[in-house]
Amino acid sequence: MTDAPLLKVRDISKFYGARIGCRNVSFDLWPGEVLAIVGESGSGKTTLLNCLATRLSPSSGSVDYRMRDGKLCNLSRMSEAERRFLMRTDWGFVHQNPADGLRMAVSAGANVGERLMAVGERHYGNIRATAGNWLGRVEIGIDRIDDQPRDFSGGMRQRLQIARNLVTAPRLVFMDEPTGGLDVSVQARLLDLLRGLVQDLGLSALIVTHDLAVARLLSHRMMVMKDGVVIEQGLTDRVLDDPREAYTQLLVSSILQV
């Protein structure tokens, strides 16, 4: 990790009319760091994530991102063209529902290749080779490269979505409940895969989850949200082993023990 944060978030608030989405959230994300945002449904996790990923515009506060040239850029002051370019090259966004992040009617290979073509790759053979390579990395058989994601299982779709996001070697990946809706054994494989990829590629990631086990496995640091406010943050192991806030204690104690 270097000395300069990749993402600087200061006092982000989002109001839906009188309702609070999230309020006064500030944190830094460092290169290579995985930060989990946990909390119950409706606590503002996804609102916060969408504000950071410029999918929503925050009501107040600022988000600065360190570009590859080392300059810190205020995301809300970027032009839309720059933002969209950033989103499809330097960033990834993994949706909870793979259908939101994939093109269901085009083949797996084209799904992975789309970002390459968007940044100007025009050699079919190279695109296909890269796509095949990435399918292998997310444990999808090369014989499925011409199949459409609608023929894939939920776990495969999610892995395909991850491959599609990582093909341009992004530095920051946003994940919204990446394991939601998957059964436990598939979840375990996906987590294993994600952990390996994050380590290999030195990715920074922001993961929104209500599943504390996901946070424990993947993240270095975590933030606990309740009613739109971050009530506790710290190293993952510290928060989970020694929760300070009453709500965090409740959350940790309510994990099902089998």
């Binding site: 839309e80 063209a81 969209r84 499809r88 093109r103 085009v106 083949s107 290979g109 084209a110 290749g113 789309e114 970002r115 073509m117 968007a118 940044v119 025009r122 079919y124 695109i127 296909r128 490269i145 011409d146």
Partner: peptide
């Protein structure tokens, strides 16, 4: 490839034409 008119207009405005090649890619793949 993209049924939303709002999105296709934006793609034209920002010259985001990667999707057009996705269609040609699909042709060759199939």
């Amino acid at each position: 490839l993209e049924p939303r008119e709002t999105e296709t207009r934006k793609m034209h405005a920002l010259e985001e034409y990667g999707l057009m090649h996705v269609k040609l890619y699909e042709d060759i793949a199939r």
